[in-house]
Amino acid sequence: MTDHPPSKRADAARNRQRILDAARAAFAATGPETSMAEIARQSGVGSATLYRNFATRHELLEALLVDEVDEVCAAAATVEGDSPEERLTTWLRRFFQYVTTKRPIVLGLLEHTDTADPVFQSRERMLAASQPLLSAAQDAHQIAGDLDLDQILDLVMAIAKIPGSPEYRQPILDVALAGLHTRDT
């Protein structure tokens, strides 16, 4: 029996993933101005392969955003925890991580287009995916009912934008999430 080389489809899928991984790392390290040539170099593919997968920088940035949004939305359905409150706060921490790492991608999308549909659609998708978590925590009287999900996501995003290291922002996030608990009135 002879070994057969991987099918072109498998190679193409691997190349696409290598490009996305390299682009994600490059944009996180140097920002949205990272050249397409540098992304091709870091991914180990030729420029032709890069442009066959993503004809423009905008397409690449959009694919990165959609992939990350898919991951965060999927996490809302699979998040673990002993209580509805714990599941919600665990997901909000995952959302916080997403917000802190996607900023270069969103800036790049906003810079290279007149509209930012994927940016605004991602918020709607996040709200739809996480609303059951908030509803369950509020129904269990573990999270205060006087805030809606838009407000809570805005709070987490505001903390993510605070200048400083992750170590600086983490205790701020911890206090804010602790403040979501049901309050005695």
Rank of each mutant, 00 (worst) to 15 (best):
D11V: 14
A137T: 00
T90P: 00
L88Q: 01
I152M: 03
L149V: 13
I159C: 01
E71N: 07
Q151G: 09
D21K: 06
S165P: 01
D154R: 11
Q142C: 00
R169F: 03
R14Y: 08
P163Q: 04
K8G: 14
G145H: 03
M157Q: 14
K8H: 14
Q121E: 15
V106D: 06
S47F: 15
L61F: 06
N53W: 09
A23V: 11
A140N: 02
P6M: 10
M1Q: 04
T78L: 05
T49A: 05
A158Q: 00
V72K: 04
K161A: 14
E86A: 12
S165C: 00
A22P: 06
E86F: 00
Y98W: 05
L109H: 10
T56C: 03
A140D: 02
D117H: 14
T182G: 11
Q138H: 11
Q42T: 09
P5M: 00
N15Y: 14
V69Q: 07
E68W: 06
R123T: 02
I39P: 09
A55D: 06
L133R: 12
W91F: 07
R125N: 02
V66D: 13
L20Y: 05
A40L: 07
Q17N: 15
L155E: 00
D114V: 09
A63L: 00
V69C: 05
S135F: 15
L92K: 10
A74R: 14
D70L: 13
G81M: 02
F95I: 05
M126T: 06
D117K: 10
R24A: 14
R14N: 11
V99M: 14
D82F: 02
R24F: 10
A28F: 06
D139S: 12
E33C: 07
A55Y: 07
H141P: 01
E38N: 06
I159N: 09
Y98R: 04
A137I: 02
L177F: 08
L177H: 07
R87W: 04
Y51K: 02
L64Y: 12
R87N: 01
D174A: 06
R183V: 15
L65A: 05
S165Y: 06
F54N: 02
A144I: 05
V69T: 12
Y51V: 12
D114W: 10
Y51P: 11
A13I: 13
R57Q: 08
T2R: 11
A28E: 09
R125V: 00
R9Y: 13
L153Y: 10
I19E: 01
L50N: 01
N53Q: 11
R123P: 00
L109G: 04
T90C: 05
R52P: 06
L147Q: 12
D3M: 07
S83K: 09
P84F: 03
Y168K: 13
L92M: 07
V156A: 08
V106R: 11
M36Y: 00
T100G: 13
S35T: 14
S35E: 08
K161W: 12
A77Q: 08
L147N: 08
A25F: 05
A37F: 14
L110K: 06
V79M: 03
